[in-house]
Amino acid sequence: MAPIPTPPAEPDDSPDTYVGLDADSAERLARERGWSTVRALPPGAIITMEYRSGRLNFEVKDGRVARSWKG
């Protein structure tokens, strides 16, 4: 039987620190801090609910991060 895969580690970083930053700066900072995937979404975007370790999501309104969450 194949071994169970180990999910990538998440940075010890709070998503709240990105709220209010401009989207480009927030994405750059998140990648520097070790997030493997950074996803910017418009308000009200329809997305799937699967959790992906190492992914940081931004809801971007008027070029700024309005909300941020893991997964």
Rank of each mutant, 00 (worst) to 15 (best):
M1F: 11
M1W: 15
A2D: 15
P3G: 09
P3F: 14
P5V: 05
T6L: 14
T6A: 13
P7R: 09
P8M: 09
P8I: 08
A9E: 13
A9S: 14
E10K: 08
P11C: 04
P11L: 07
D12G: 03
D12N: 15
D12C: 03
D12Q: 12
D13C: 08
D13Y: 04
S14Q: 14
S14C: 05
D16T: 09
D16M: 07
Y18M: 04
Y18H: 05
Y18Q: 07
V19L: 08
G20R: 06
G20W: 07
L21K: 13
D22L: 07
D22Y: 06
A23W: 03
A23K: 08
D24C: 01
D24K: 14
S25R: 15
A26H: 04
E27Y: 09
E27L: 07
E27P: 00
R28T: 12
R28N: 13
R28H: 08
L29E: 12
R31P: 03
R31A: 11
R31Q: 11
R31Y: 07
E32R: 15
R33C: 04
W35Q: 03
W35E: 03
W35A: 05
W35N: 00
S36D: 11
S36L: 10
T37G: 03
T37R: 14
T37H: 13
V38T: 08
R39Q: 15
A40D: 09
L41C: 02
P42T: 03
P43D: 04
G44Y: 01
G44A: 01
G44K: 00
G44L: 04
A45C: 09
A45V: 01
A45K: 06
I46W: 12
I47E: 12
T48R: 10
M49R: 13
M49A: 15
M49D: 14
E50G: 01
Y51S: 05
Y51G: 06
Y51P: 00
R52W: 10
S53F: 11
S53T: 11
G54L: 00
G54M: 06
L56S: 10
N57G: 01
N57T: 03
F58D: 05
F58K: 06
F58T: 06
F58G: 01
F58I: 02
E59H: 07
E59K: 03
V60E: 00
K61D: 14
G63N: 08
G63S: 05
R64F: 10
V65S: 01
V65M: 01
A66N: 10
W69Q: 08
W69S: 00
K70Q: 10
K70R: 15
